[in-house]
Amino acid sequence: MADTAEILSGLAEIVEEVAGIDTAEVTADKSFVDDLDIDSLSMVEIAVQAEDKFGVKIPDDQLAELKTVGDAVSYIEKNQ
């Protein structure tokens, strides 16, 4: 089981690989769409990789609720 910091850094690596955004930019308060400019298809790619990495299920309807990086981290933490 990964802790909050490990999930954040793991997620940041995924975001970097999918969207080319520096891991330092990926902080809990950032909105995926408004701050990081990540589109809906990249969100799917991030979700798929996060599922593999953290052993969680992130269905499409749930994915739409994850507005910020912090939302995603807490969802993964609760569901891993």
Binding site: L41, M43, V44, A47, V48, D60, L63
Partner: peptide, 11 residues
Amino acid sequence: HGQAVFRWATT
């Protein structure tokens, strides 16, 4: 359903 199809196709 664009996202669902994208997920299916890419995986």
